[in-house]
Write a protein that binds this DNA or RNA. Structure first.
Lengths: 208, 208
DNA sequence: TTTTTTTCTTGACCTACTTCATTTTTATTG
DNA sequence: CAATAAAAATGAAGTAGGTCAAGAAAAAAA
């Protein structure tokens, strides 16, 4: 039997928080009390396409979990060029990590690439959670370790591969991202120009 | 009053472990019992120049803290080229982090650049420490977060700067490393050839 | 649906960095 | 302290990828 749900309830706080709890439970086992504690530490926020959740000069006060939608974290250099550090879609975390953990002004822009829903926790609340319960400390430790391991793989891959190989690798590892991020943003993530990525893509199409 | 100490005692287990305890105390405050617990979890190992502590194909069983000396972590690609992921000198940690945290076979070589002394903890012992005491969990969480923040800065810097600027930046940020790592290794860390780094250096000398 | 803005494509030319081969310098070993 | 090996320097030629400019396509706004 099919139940019709009004559109605005599809990502209401209750269901969106389920996806976070589900995620966290992959790494630590939460009791019902801990589940409640975690849920009440996060706030649901809707973000429209092209809206910024982090901007240079302002300290990044929140760590965000993407429930729905897509984001991009990037820097703009003096000469006006954009360079992408990170993308995030459903079930990924995003922040200006240097700004967040050191509580310094951000250097990154973080912008929504689609209308999105995030769950965000405030810096002080996160400190509270970690201090009050070993399990939450463990969770954030695992997140940081996985993040670090990921960036090690990325750095090595970037050092050892050509622009074309980097693109091929991205396609292979993140097929879900490719059609949701603009080409110029992907190019700047992979360390090449949008023109050059365009040529790589067209060469591929002609081959197949 | 000056006390003369036989050379072989300068880095005996007691004093080398002090440097680790000192380091850890920068991030969490250890009781004397916790200090003892931490000390007894680490083993001192002397490593001769050119000796490997991690090799591809073998799982990296230890996390190492450098008490004295210098190390280099690098990969060798199919075409024989070396690419450096990390250096470590006194008070830095080194491991094939992906191999260590996932307990998978390593892809990196880690080699001593000088006769060195490390303190190493075994994977299972580290898990024990973290499980048994919230404070140790916190410590390793902070290590991972700082590592991740560092690599974010590195990736952004690499994306946004020329070979020459990357070298200048390394000089500025890590003056202690420069004279202790071979040029070809530094070049491969910075993502350029040793020939090109040689030219950059000579251009600098002529300028000044 | 039309207009406007943003993104992508394509061609022509350019340059930062690589490759290869040889010599010089520095470090290691017997 | 020779002899040998490893690392660094240097020149000449090559190329992966960048820049710039203009048009085409797609998306957003009106």
């Amino acid at each position: 039997m099919l139940i019709l749900v009004p559109k605005h309830e599809l990502f209401n706080p209750v269901s969106s928080k389920k996806s976070l709890i589900n995620y966290v439970n992959n790494f630590v086992e939460l009791s019902s009390e801990e589940t409640h504690q975690l849920e009440s530490s996060f706030e649901e926020v809707k973000v429209k396409k092209r809206q910024f959740i982090v901007q240079p000069g302002f300290t990044n006060m929140h760590r965000a979990f993407v429930v729905k939608g897509a984001f991009r974290a990037y820097i703009i250099t003096n000469d006006g060029q954009e360079h992408t550090l990170q993308f995030a879609i459903e079930n990924w975390w995003i922040s200006d990590f240097n700004s967040y953990i050191y509580q310094h002004p951000a250097t990154l822009f973080i912008v929504a690439l689609e209308d999105s829903t995030i769950l965000q926790i405030e810096y002080n609340q996160e400190q509270e959670l970690k201090k009050s319960n070993h399990k939450f400390e463990t969770f954030f430790r695992i997140m940081a370790e996985k993040g670090l391991a990921f960036e090690h793989r990325r750095i090595l891959f970037n050092l050892t591969n050509s622009a074309e190989a980097r693109y091929e690798n991205f396609l292979l590892n993140f097929p879900n991202f490719v059609n949701r991020v603009p080409q110029y943003a992907l190019a700047s993530y992979l360390g090449m120009t949008t023109e050059f990525l365009s040529r790589i893509r067209n060469k591929r199409i002609k081959k197949s």
